Every structure is written in C-alpha cells, then in structure tokens.
Simulated scan of single mutants.
Amino acid sequence: MKERPVSDRQALIIGASQGLGLILADELARRGWRVIATTRRLGGELQDRADAWNGMLEVESLEMTSAEQVTALRDRLDGHRLDLLFVNAAIDRGDLPINEVPTEMFTEVMVTNALSPLRTLEALRDLVAPAGTVAVMSSEQGSISRNTEDGYELYKASKTALNQLMRSYATRHADDGHTKLLIDPGHNQTRLGGFDAPLIPQESIPAVVDVLEAQAGAPGLQFLDRHGETVPW
C-alpha cells in the first residue's frame, strides 16, 4: 500500500522500541501521522525507522516507570498538540501460579503494566487536543469474564488492574472531550506474546489503527478489540 499524504495529525506512542509499539509507530507514520515514539534505550530498530521516515517519526528517551522521566518528557514536549496519546509499554514475567510469584516480581509487573501507564496519562493528558484520543494497549487477558483458562495469572491481573484504573481515569475526566480507549490487539507474535502466537503485528496493528481512526471523537471509555468489537469486562 502506498504512503498516504502527510497530515497535521500528531501521535505520541509510549513504548515503541519493539513489537506492537514499533509496528504501531511505523503504521501511523505510513498513514501520514507525525509520530513521537519513546524507547528506554536510544538506537536500535526504532531509530532506523525514524531515519527512514525523514522527520515523520521522532524518537524520545523514556523509562515509563520513572515519574521523574515522565515529567521531563512532558517538559520537553511543551507546546505540542497531540491527536493521539497511546501507552503501549508492558512486561510479562512468565507463567507462574500466583502463590509462586515473588513479591518483587508482583510489584514490578503491577507498577509497569498498571500504575505507570495511568501515571503517564495523567502527566501528558494536557498535551492532547480537546477532541483527541487517549488509548492504552490492554489485552483480552484482562477480561475477568473471559478468564476461563489456566495460566499467566500475574499478567492477567495486571491487565485487569490497568482496565480498572482506566475506568477510574475515564470517570474522573469524563468531561474533557477526549476519546478514551482500551485496545485488545489479539495474541501476536512478539517477545511478550511468544513467537508461536496466531497473529502477526504487521496484520493486526493496521486493524488497530483503523479502530483508532474510526473511534476518534467518540465519547466515553470503550474496551475494543482490533476489529472494533467490544471486549467484555
């Protein structure tokens, strides 16, 4: 597919060094968005993509779990007006039953997957245009009603906590005019999802971007999959 004309739409993607975030940043740039994408370590494939896009994709350094670094990023981006703020960063620490999860591991996963995304949204939300979109990468595994198979209890719990905190965020900021989305991209072949997963990001992420673009301006909070269908809580 050919690149689309450059528009004045601007997106900030938190967590784009690899996997879904990298493909998301690339897909938005391909569609003519101006993209700012963050990574914990500069260089690598994200920088290669940025170089190839000739200014359409910019790279910023960020460790999302550091409140100080999030504040510093906010200061560096002062004056920007975002049409999309998307928090993608997350981790997984394996398939242990909850009684075998060390306290330190539990804290690390919950801080990274639940606390930090919402803390980041709060710090950066004033950069989002009045009709802009605030989105977070969630997962069907965060759905309580669909938790009917064994495994990955800590990761599931962290995504459920993320969804609950996003619900609280949406309630607190109900009148800000922002579209608010939790996105389930499906089970993709990434380092986090495993390379035997049934989906590939190069196919699922364009569908996710279709949803983001279609939902722009929609009121309230929605939990949607890559087809735009509602995921049950």
Rank of each mutant, 00 (worst) to 15 (best):
M1H: 15
K2S: 08
E3K: 12
P5A: 00
A11S: 03
I13F: 04
Q18D: 15
L22P: 06
I23F: 03
D26W: 09
E27S: 09
A29T: 08
R30G: 01
R31E: 15
W33I: 03
R34A: 05
V35T: 05
R41S: 08
L46P: 04
G55L: 05
G55W: 09
E60P: 02
A67N: 00
L73D: 08
G79S: 05
G79N: 04
L85N: 06
A90V: 11
D92L: 07
N113P: 09
L115C: 02
G132Y: 10
V134K: 03
A135T: 06
S139N: 11
I144K: 03
S145A: 15
K159W: 09
A161T: 05
Q164C: 01
L165V: 05
L165D: 06
S168G: 08
A170N: 06
T171C: 06
H173W: 12
D175C: 08
D176M: 10
G177Y: 11
G186S: 05
G186R: 04
A197K: 03
A207H: 11
A207M: 15
V211S: 11
A216R: 10
A216M: 11
G220Y: 11
Q222K: 13
Q222C: 09
H227Q: 12
E229G: 07
T230S: 12
W233N: 08
